[in-house]
């Protein structure tokens, strides 16, 4: 099963990004074999509007079945939940730390948007 993590860089040592729509990258981590791929989200990092919606479509297209991020706004949440993806809140320093927290089932599920849009 693949899980998407919001990241500020390309490696597991990268800072975990608490923003979803304007995260710089998504690390798509494969829980079965421990490998990962990186999706660049630069286009949405700078989008005038609708960053959350586009980012959510990236995550859907990646085939991830779960998403681990800091916070999720209402429009992004609508897309993520429409696609049947489970979302989790993590308060991690690095992506690697967030992966460990996910594996140990230490994360709180997000059942709905937990912030307004443009919360940063």
């Amino acid at each position: 099963m693949k899980v998407a993590f919001t990241a500020a860089g390309d490696t597991l040592d990268s800072a975990f990004d608490s923003r979803f729509g304007r995260a710089e990258k998504f690390i798509i981590y494969d829980m079965e074999n421990g490998t990962f791929t990186v999706i660049d989200n630069g286009q949405n990092f700078q989008a005038a509007q609708g960053a959350g919606i586009q980012s959510a479509q990236h995550v859907v297209a990646s085939g991830a079945q779960a998403l681990v991020t800091g916070h999720l706004g209402p429009k992004a949440a609508k897309v993520i939940f429409a696609a049947g993806i489970a979302a989790y809140h993590a308060d991690a320093k690095t992506v690697g730390e967030a992966v460990s927290m996910y594996k140990s089932k230490a994360l709180k599920p997000l059942r709905d948007a937990d912030v307004e849009g443009h919360w940063v």
């Binding site: 609708g50 609508k78 897309v79 429409a82």
Partner: peptide, 23 residues
């Protein structure tokens, strides 16, 4: 529709368009 939209106001998920009127 989602590709045409310059304003990210439409997402197509599970074969269905979601329209975000505010955008």
């Amino acid at each position: 529709c989602a590709d045409v939209c310059e304003f990210n106001a439409i997402a197509v998920i599970a074969g269905k368009p979601l329209v975000f009127e505010d955008l």
